[in-house]
């Protein structure tokens, strides 16, 4: 397992770095760094409805960025613009600019297939294929024509997803035989197997019980030393626990009476949860709405 982070990475348990001043598991918030994603003036239009408007956001490398907000605030929509999953929704159109390492994701010559290979996604409901555990993980490497020992790739991916010990003796079993939490970790392993740089997570724990949720959160924490993670969550405590930066979205209504989602505030998680600068953020955090 090649870990690209340095000894100074606050997530590395061996580095002994602890920063007691933040809410998120007692670690300091890393600098934003060279942004992986730079979203500016982003709007998403479904047909004639501008569902999300004017979002500006920078996502730092090897960090966990959380998007929170009430239902219908457009956070999942924004997430899906990051790996062009919105392309698959008929009538969806993206305005504004999304760059990935400075490269325009929506430039006409960009191949969405390659985008999604590099920017993986884990979904709300665990969605393994109706195949064996092994074949689930091997699917991505196979279609991407990855060279190397498939058994090794499968083992590595499952190990990284903290699932190997639980399934190593039943790799040929159908993935549906696993529990919900295990299925979700299998989906994470499956995503890791194609060697992405970024993992997008769309409410990955909303279908799981608290124990399984905790396991996924621990896993995210582990993975963030290697991958850039963007997570959408309904669960504010989850954002507070795992993320370095938090974007708070809300649903607003324009003069014409149309509802749309917009970004209210984006800052370090500790700031968002302790001294937000916008009243709406504070109300949401305090549980006054949403």
């Amino acid at each position: 397992m090649s870990v690209s982070n340095t000894a100074a990475n606050p997530r590395d348990p061996e580095s002994g770095v602890t920063a007691p001043d933040t809410a998120a598991k007692g670690r300091s918030t890393p600098e934003l760094g060279e942004p992986v994603f730079d979203v500016s003036g982003l709007s998403v239009v479904y047909g004639t409805n501008r569902a999300v408007r004017d979002v500006d956001l920078k996502v730092g490398p090897q960090q966990i960025t959380a998007m929170i907000g009430p239902s219908g605030c457009g956070k999942s929509t924004v997430l899906r613009t990051l790996n062009r999953m919105n392309d698959l929704i008929p009538g969806a159109r993206v305005e504004g600019k999304v760059t990935y390492h400075g490269e325009d994701l929506y430039a006409p010559e960009v191949d969405p297939i390659e985008v999604r290979r590099r920017i993986g996604m884990v979904f709300q409901k665990p969605n393994p294929f109706p195949k064996s555990i092994y074949d689930n993980v091997a699917y991505g490497p196979r279609i991407n024509g990855m060279r190397g020992n498939m058994d090794e790739i499968v083992e590595q991916s499952l190990t990284k997803a903290a699932l190997w010990d639980e399934v190593k003796d039943k790799l040929k079993d159908n993935a549906f035989a696993l529990s919900g939490g295990q299925q979700q970790r299998l989906c994470i392993a499956r995503t890791i197997a194609v060697n992405p740089e970024v993992i997008l997570m769309d409410e990955p724990c909303s279908a799981l019980d608290p124990i399984a949720t905790l396991k996924i959160e621990d896993l995210m924490y582990e993975l963030a030393s290697e991958y850039t993670i963007v997570i959408v969550t309904h669960n504010m405590q989850q954002a507070a626990r795992v993320s370095d930066r938090t974007a708070f979205f809300t649903a607003s209504v324009d003069e014409a009476g149309d509802r749309f989602g917009n970004l209210v505030e984006y800052d370090e998680t500790s700031t968002i949860f302790s001294k937000p600068s916008d009243q709406r953020t504070e109300d949401y955090i305090a549980g006054r709405f949403g």
Binding site: I113, V115, R116, F123, N127, F129, I143, T191, V194
Partner: peptide, 11 residues
């Protein structure tokens, strides 16, 4: 959702 998962892996 299974098809979406496959797309999200670069299929």
């Amino acid at each position: 959702d299974q098809q979406m998962a496959a797309y999200a892996m670069g299929s």
